[in-house]
Write a protein that binds this DNA or RNA. Structure first.
Length: 603
RNA sequence: GCCGACGUAGCUCAAUCGGCAGAGCACCCGCCUUGUAAGCGGGAGGUUACGAGUUCGAUUCUCGUCGUCGGCUCCA
């Protein structure tokens, strides 16, 4: 068996091109701002960036000037020369570059690389020079600037970025660029960006009348239009079906609770900045809930529990509110009001692995149903430095729980990657990471293990020996929130939803107004069967009616003219453009019902 | 929250140098009675996001507020 070895990005020609392009850009920028301070400029997924500290803000015109100058520099065929030097020498070279001096000190101590990641061994210090520009850099680079084709790169945007990614540090100016091996690759990439924009859920959401935002309602607070309402109903139906089969019990809890509950849960000490501020009545503070868990814990605690009752799985499509910072809002993907496909599983330690894998199995069923194949499972762990701040202060339990999750994933053969310092405050979590149409990352499904909060709520069950034991709690949301899920589905399907999920499943199109009544009769029969249908009896021509149904991405169009009316039949046009003439309504209904019942991908 | 850009009709976008705010689509009304992605004509629709300021005069220039977008930080 042959195994294909994928070339590491870090070792690829593309990586060198982008890294070198960043240096060339920095040279051009420094020519405009001789006193400008340079920081770091690494290659990224489709290009590169470089962060600068400059005396004034960059303008789009600057970008043009810089790009033009870069084209000249690459033509100069300047060699990239690497020199290994001592820390002291490096400090002399970068004497007036304070950010570089900071980096050199980090390297000298041997603790961290230029991005602040801890290093195993003390790295050597090297500089790269081409033409007039010298940078502290470990490479690698292309041999000379001419390896970068002058028509294969483009500067994309100016953005703010904190020095070392820390919001307490100074805000720098970042220039993003893209660079490729040749002009065709660049062209393809730019085309791909254009295509992605067409899939943007914010654009499709408006066009397909799924949701809107309104300034007077508030940022991050979506209004679901009737079409969006249908999708939500369908998603809830799906979740309830799956959860009922998996032994979940449905509960309902209020949107508002007293402060006491969130003090006990730990949300106020650890999560307060993401919560809406309290409202006070008669001396009592109330908070709008950012999560459902504390209420579910109360339900668990509402009566004595035996080991025989476990696991107990409490599910609720709960509405939560979180005060996301204004700049973090992003269409439906990041909002302030959301409905979570939430549930909490209370179980004994010996049941943990089975329950945990049960949740993962649910993920896989959903992935299969939606045809999701591009995703990454991330196991988010705590960081020692955050204990008592971001994280509940009990390192022993952190390590133990993280091990349990790892073991469960390994035993179940689920591939995943580990990320430090991204856990929930009460325990490690598994996120399913996905990408929006324009390439932004999001966590969709999530699954978190809580070893801390049950104890705070005095949750207990009586074990076989008759002693009290604290249950573990698994928080899970395989379908994420309605908001993020619908946003994701819009982009995933580019609005071409499978029949079961389509807000409007059938549009009946009479050719002349002589068939209006016949068309409306068909709609009545379809609705009788639980099918979402409407008739287009506007004063437009058939072609225009078809066009508007196509634009709304309605899966089935039934065209009815005099022939169909007289024969009691319909002519089916499918969203993909195919058609099937003169079929009976019963035949069409049978086809549809089959697709809907199976939640089939095909039309 | 931070850095930057932007905000004109329901939507997509025009408006020269500071001088009467416009088009297409959608909507309403008529005509056409039509065979698989836009038939024709007419009508209505605006405090140019909001609030100040400069000016004889502001969509245009300045400041503030709100919102959106591109990032950073953060997250379902």
């Amino acid at each position: 068996m042959s195994q294909q070895v994928q070339e590491k990005y870090e070792e690829s020609q593309l990586y060198k091109i982008r890294h070198s392009a960043a240096h060339i850009m920095a040279q051009a920028v420094l020519e405009i701002f001789p006193d400008g301070k340079v920081t770091i400029g690494p290659p990224v997924e489709n290009g590169f960036y470089y962060d600068f500290d400059l005396p004034r803000n960059l303008t789009p015109e600057d970008l043009e000037t810089i790009e033009k100058r870069m084209r000249q520099i690459v033509q100069g065929k300047h060699e990239f020369k690497k020199t290994v030097i001592s820390a002291d020498e490096a400090k002399k070279v970068f004497a007036n570059q304070p950010y570089k001096l900071e980096l050199i000190e980090g390297l000298e101590k041997g603790g961290f690389d230029e991005y602040g990641n801890p290093l195993k061994e003390k790295p050597e210090i090297s500089i790269y020079q081409h033409d007039t520009f010298v940078d502290l850099c470990r490479g690698p680079h292309v041999a000379n600037t001419k390896e970068i084709k002058q028509d294969a790169f483009k500067l994309m945007s100016i953005a703010g970025a904190y020095w070392r990614g820390d919001e307490h540090n100074k805000m720098l100016q970042r220039i993003y660029g893209t660079a490729w091996e040749n002009a065709q690759q660049l062209k393809d990439y730019l085309l791909q960006l254009e295509e992605a924009k067409k899939r943007d859920h914010r654009k499709l959401g408006r066009e397909l009348e799924i949701f809107i935002f309104d300034d007077e309602v508030g940022p991050g607070l979506p209004l679901w239009l009737p079409n969006g309402g249908v999708m939500i109903e369908e998603l809830e139906k799906l979740a309830k079906e799956m959860e009922e089969k998996a032994g979940y019990l449905r509960v309902r809890t209020p949107n508002l609770t007293k402060e006491d509950l969130f003090i006990r849960s730990g949300h106020l000490p650890y999560y307060a900045e993401s919560m809406y501020p309290p409202m006070e009545l008669e001396g009592v503070k109330y908070y709008v809930k950012p999560m459902n868990c504390p209420m579910h814990h109360k339900i668990f605690a509402s009566k004595g529990r035996s080991y025989r009752d476990l696991p107990i799985r409490l599910a609720e499509y709960g509405t939560c509110y979180r005060y996301e910072k204004s700049g973090e809002l992003f269409g439906l993907m990041r909002v302030r009001s959301m409905q979570m496909n939430d549930a909490h599983i209370y179980c004994g330690e010996d049941q943990f692995e089975q329950e945990f894998m049960g949740v993962i199995a649910l993920y896989h069923k959903y992935f299969e149903l939606f045809g999701i194949d591009k995703y990454v499972m991330r196991l988010s762990l705590h960081a020692k430095s955050g204990l008592g701040k971001k994280y509940v202060d009990n390192q022993r339990l952190w390590l133990k729980t993280e091990d349990m999750v790892r073991r469960a994933m390994d035993n179940g053969g689920v591939p995943y990657m580990e990320v430090a310092d991204e856990a929930a405050f009460y325990g490690p979590k598994i996120d399913v990471q996905i990408w929006s149409a324009i390439g932004r990352e999001f966590s969709l499904a999530t699954n978190q293990v809580d070893f801390a909060v049950p104890e705070r709520f005095d949750l207990k069950f009586t074990n076989k020996e008759g002693a009290d034991e604290i249950p573990l709690c698994i928080h899970r949301a395989p379908l994420s929130t309605h908001e993020r899920m619908v946003g994701f589905l819009l982009e995933h399907y580019a609005g071409n939803f499978p029949v079961w999920l389509s807000p409007e499943q059938v549009r009946v199109i009479p050719i002349t107004d002589g068939q209006n009544e016949y068309a409306q009769g068909i709609v009545r029969q379809l609705r009788e069967q639980g099918i979402r249908a409407s008739a287009d009896i506007s004063a437009q021509r058939m072609n225009a009616k078809i066009r508007s149904a196509q634009l709304m991405k309605v899966p089935y169009m039934l065209v009815v003219g005099e022939n169909e009316m007289n024969a009691g039949q319909v002519s089916l046009r499918v969203r993909d453009g195919s058609q099937q003439n003169n079929i009976s309504l019963a035949e069409f209904i049978a086809r549809m019902k089959d697709r809907i019942e199976r939640r089939a991908k095909e039309l």
